[in-house]
């Protein structure tokens, strides 16, 4: 079928203006440009600052250390990004990492082999994400309440399964994963890079990505257009759980044991990285590079402050200041 093109009223000049790229100067005075690039600006600022004040900061070894240290947070921020893009939040993220680690440790200790242990850990955390998604959509319970409940539930589950005891995981595979290098980067960094690439393609180059943003933007409109918004949300939480599983493998590899302890700073920093990355907490607007760079920035911040011998008391303060500043800048985001 053709469209009414021939006799459409032609009294007004029809059509779409050619896209014009704004000039660089115009960009530089536009606050929303800075808002979009807050994490990059922050990272560059920190690198310059610490590079000048600490001779070790810019050394290759320290750069590698920062990247290695950031890998877990990058993976988690990606998971959190998918959830936040649907205008939700996953408060159970760090607890899932703990549970994944505990399951990995127990299965490895049971002698089922490290690969089975890793796969089952990821399956378990993905299942938690799936459950979060189902409770939020089918159960119609607010995301905040559900993931808070899961947080508590899996904290208990982790303690019960582990008996509160850490489990040693002496696996050569994990040791290699944690300490091996391929080219300039350690394996965990490659894992994070791969996660960034896959997530970026999923968000920007697939139907799922568009539907995710539509769901986060205006769920009702999206569903009126036939998008299964509930499925999209469930998928987002499952992805978040999957990322928690990957992070738990990296975590166990890094510290050599599976501990039933929750690292709350991982949760807080994942949300902070998402905010720094310019992702709207109201949903509908997201990127992957932004949060990844946000995670890198938070890691570089702690690294630099440590090198400068800034007391540990001041470090959370610095992180807090930066995150609030970023949120302030975000107000300029149009």
């Amino acid at each position: 079928m053709s469209l009414p093109a021939d006799n459409a009223p032609a009294s007004r000049q029809a059509g779409v203006h050619e896209e014009s790229r704004p000039s660089l100067a115009a960009l530089l005075i536009d606050p929303s440009f800075w808002a979009d690039w807050a994490s990059v600006v922050g990272l560059v600022g920190l690198v310059i600052l610490f590079g000048v004040t600490s001779p070790v900061f810019l050394s290759v070894a320290n750069m590698q250390a920062i990247l290695l240290a950031a890998a877990i947070l990058v993976v988690l921020s990606i998971g959190q990004t998918f959830v936040v893009a649907t205008s939700g939040i996953d408060l159970s993220l760090a607890a899932s990492v703990m549970l994944g680690a505990v399951i990995l440790g127990l299965i490895h200790a049971a002698g089922l082999g490290i690969f089975a242990a890793c796969v089952l850990a990821v399956l378990a955390t993905s299942a938690i994400g799936l459950m979060n998604g189902l409770l939020i959509t089918a159960g119609r319970i607010p995301d905040f309440v559900v993931t808070l409940g899961t947080l508590s539930g899996i904290t208990g589950l982790g303690l019960i399964l582990s008996g509160g005891e850490p489990t040693m995981v002496g696996s050569t595979f994990l040791l290699k994963l944690a300490s091996g290098y391929l080219g300039p980067f350690g394996y965990p960094v490659w894992v994070a890079i791969a996660a960034v690439l896959v997530a970026h393609v999923a968000l920007y180059h697939t139907r799922f990505g568009v539907h995710l943003l539509a769901t986060g933007g205006q769920a009702e409109s999206a569903s009126a257009l036939g998008i299964r918004t509930n499925r999209v949300k469930i998928a987002a939480y499952t992805i978040s759980g999957f990322c928690a599983g990957i992070a738990s493998i990296l975590l166990v590899a890094r510290i050599g044991s599976a501990e039933p302890q929750i690292n709350t700073s991982l949760l807080l920093n994942s949300v902070a990285a998402v905010v720094l990355g310019g992702v709207s907490l109201f949903g509908g607007r997201a990127s992957i590079l932004g949060p990844a760079i946000g995670a890198l920035m938070l890691t570089a911040l702690v690294n630099g402050l440590t090198l400068l011998s800034v007391s540990a008391f001041y470090q959370p303060l610095a992180v807090g200041v930066i995150v609030v500043l970023a949120a302030l800048i975000m107000r300029y985001q149009k």
Partner: peptide, 16 residues
């Protein structure tokens, strides 16, 4: 950062 921050502690030691 807290009693659960096993990796954060390792990261700081790595830097030092």
């Amino acid at each position: 950062a807290n009693m659960g921050d096993a990796t954060g502690q390792a990261d700081k030691l790595t830097a030092m």
